[in-house]
């Protein structure tokens, strides 16, 4: 009995190189594709309906293919204004949040100082606080201080919630850096300022860029906090929300496709640059 059971195994040639895919492998492959489909289906639908030849105000059922909406992007001047608002806010908030967050990240990653634990706690509170809470409390803060809500308060709010994300990404990068490298720069005659810009900054640049991208992405599609702090200023997400009741025009899908396309492009560029950096 035992010899019979051992027989086929012993006789089988040892597997070398590629072995036959087993059930587990197939399952894993199927699962991977399923997750990708789940993630990308909404995006695919958004892109598709930017090419929908719809006649009515609603853009929910497929009517045929057309590229006409791409030529008529500017049909709604208030939509164009909202997109411009969003881009301006995102650009300013990204620059400010990246500058502040980089400083915070370097300080937290490199130095030990009084109040470090508190700063850590505040950062994570800002990251984990529900947006609705932050939006509502910011609105009551602005109202009680008598600050008129609008473009400026949106920028302030966006800087506030994205600065922690920048700080966390930069800190991770700084923590992985040998502190002796900056000392070496000082030792070789660089002032503290020169050592930072010539050595530390180029080394943490990938972290700074990742933080900036995160800040931009968070800002451009924020709805909840912008709704509370925006006053009469309308951004791209707010405009779409307002248009839902009367029907979202296909131009929104087209703009969404463009923003998604830029995002993909940046991600690809980053990957290529990363590969080149590693040689």
């Amino acid at each position: 009995m035992t010899s019979a059971a051992a027989g086929p195994d012993a006789a089988a040639p040892p597997h070398r190189g590629r072995r036959r895919p087993r059930w587990g492998d197939r399952l894993l492959r199927a699962y991977t594709w399923l997750v990708l489909a789940w993630l990308l289906a909404p995006v695919a639908v958004m892109i598709a309906f930017g090419f929908n030849d719809t006649r009515s105000k609603s853009n929910v059922s497929w009517q045929g293919f057309t590229t006409r909406w791409w030529g008529r992007l500017g049909d709604y001047p208030d939509l164009t204004a909202a997109v411009v608002n969003s881009l301006e806010i995102a650009a300013i908030a990204t620059v400010v949040a990246t500058a502040l967050g980089t400083g915070m990240g370097v300080a937290l990653g490199r130095y030990r100082f009084r109040g470090q634990g508190g700063t850590d706690l505040m950062m994570f509170a800002a990251i984990s606080a529900p947006e609705i809470v932050m939006g509502a409390s910011l609105l009551s803060l602005f109202v009680s201080l008598g600050v008129p809500t609008g473009f400026g308060t949106i920028v302030l709010a966006h800087v506030l919630f994205s600065v922690s994300f920048v700080a966390v990404t930069v800190r991770a990068r700084v923590a992985g850096m040998d502190p002796a490298v900056e000392e070496a720069a000082r030792d070789l005659g660089a002032s503290a300022w020169a050592a930072f810009w010539r050595v530390t900054f180029p080394m943490i640049l990938p972290g700074v860029l990742a933080g900036a991208l995160l800040a931009f992405a968070l800002s451009i599609d924020d709805f909840v906090i912008t709704q509370f702090t925006g006053g009469a200023t309308v951004t791209f997400p707010l405009w779409i929300y307002g248009a839902v009741r009367i029907g979202v025009p296909p131009q929104v899908n087209v703009l969404g496709t463009i923003i998604f396309g830029i995002g993909v492009l940046v991600a690809v560029l980053n990957a290529v640059a990363g590969r080149r950096r590693r040689g």
Partner: peptide
């Protein structure tokens, strides 16, 4: 006197070369 104005140079244990 700060390190950048001292006439000595150091070879670090980790070498601390500038990777970029």
């Amino acid at each position: 006197v700060p390190p950048n104005r001292r006439d000595v140079n150091m070879v670090f244990q980790s070498y601390a070369l500038f990777p970029h």
